[in-house]
Computed example of a mutant assay.
Amino acid sequence: MPKYIMILLSIWLIVIDRCSGVSSPIKPFTLYKNSTELKNDTADLWWTINDAWKEITFELHIKSADWIIGLGISSAGGMKGVDIVVGWVESSSKVYLQYAVPSTNTTYHGKIYKAPTGYSIKRHAIAHKMLIDPKNVNLVHHLKLYECDPMTTLNDDQLPDGLCDEIVDEIKFCSLNFATVWAVGGDAMREFPEEAGCGIGGDYEIKYYMIQMHYDNSRLDSSTASIPSALTVPPRMEQFAIDSYCPSEVTRNIPKSGNNVIFALPHTHLQRISVWTKIIRNNAAMQYLFNSEKYDFNYQYENRLLKSIKLYPGDSCATRCIYNTKNKDKITSGCERTRDEMCLHMFTYYPRMNNFYACITVNDDSAGVLWIQLR
């Protein structure tokens, strides 16, 4: 029967500044200023503290499989406020690392991955499944898979991985085009219709993807301020509508035969009532692209349309989000926290276009409105 032993290592940043013998037969990845043998012939630790950057680089070697290892970093050796990473190695030599969500109410974490290179010709994924640990699903607000711009140059040995605000310049070319999205209450499995799929491998131009995780520790209070966007909802309102308009210029490059919309995912936060988007053609409202008349934050499905809907060149779209703030005494701003608000409506279509990603409403410096088409 395998042993499961938790080893919690607290690094006392004030007093540790020494090196002692280590027993690992494997050389560390790089040079470190400090090292110590934590357990004879079993566990060795190397680390370097960069005071200027306020960073600790460390490497831990553990002898044995089927152990669960916890490494904690604490200023005083206690558990309160400690940063912990947990990992283990199965007897099959498969390695697992568990990310510890920071102790703030909102965390956006991004990590870029290289697409599989084992396919000599382009293949098409016909379905995908989200794998979220049921024990931690209450912390996950959403998961977005982005395609990186094909012109982006990345170092495969140092792909960006960290808090989005801290690596914003490194991930800016991987933050525009959604490949897929999962949000609270959504289905784990998503299947494409028979005639559609997601390209991968071969000469397919997308070589890198980014997974962005929004973790929500809503039970924690935080002093982080929200920065108002184009969306501001007053308090004590039974119904308050926010309208967004995407003009015909955005769809001018759609093929004459049209694009086929097959999935719809509305997304707002806790004050929502409904979300809908209508197609406007020749100055007349034609039909709903999707109407989430009874929107529920806890059940955000990526809805597969019963029949695909056509978008043609020159079409424009109008989106409306309606909010109820009867339970609030303060203004609700548009921002990233769950307690703030958003008004998003995401759609999946085919055939794929390289210049048809998003249409966004933002405030400009003169408090006017800009319509932006993202490449």
Rank of each mutant, 00 (worst) to 15 (best):
M1K: 12
M1H: 06
M1I: 13
Y4K: 14
I7F: 09
L8W: 13
L13Q: 14
I16Q: 13
C19D: 15
V22M: 11
S24D: 10
P25M: 07
K27I: 07
T30C: 06
S35C: 11
K39G: 02
K39Y: 08
W47D: 05
I49Q: 02
W53K: 11
K63A: 09
G70D: 02
I73R: 02
V86L: 07
E90L: 08
S92Y: 03
Y96G: 00
N105Y: 04
K122P: 03
A127C: 06
V137L: 00
L139H: 07
P150M: 00
P160Y: 02
C164L: 15
I167P: 14
E170S: 09
V181A: 03
A183S: 14
D187L: 13
D187M: 14
I211T: 05
H214P: 08
D216H: 06
R219L: 08
S222V: 07
S223Y: 08
S226T: 01
I227K: 12
A230R: 10
P235R: 08
P235K: 02
Q239P: 08
Y245Q: 09
E249L: 14
R252E: 14
S257N: 11
N260M: 03
F263E: 03
P266G: 12
H269N: 02
Q271W: 05
V275D: 12
I279W: 05
I279D: 03
A285I: 15
M286D: 03
M286I: 06
N291P: 11
Y295G: 01
N303P: 00
K307G: 00
P313I: 09
S316T: 10
C317I: 01
T325R: 00
K328Y: 14
K328M: 11
R337G: 12
R339T: 13
M342E: 04
M342S: 05
M346Y: 09
C359H: 04
V362E: 09
D364I: 08
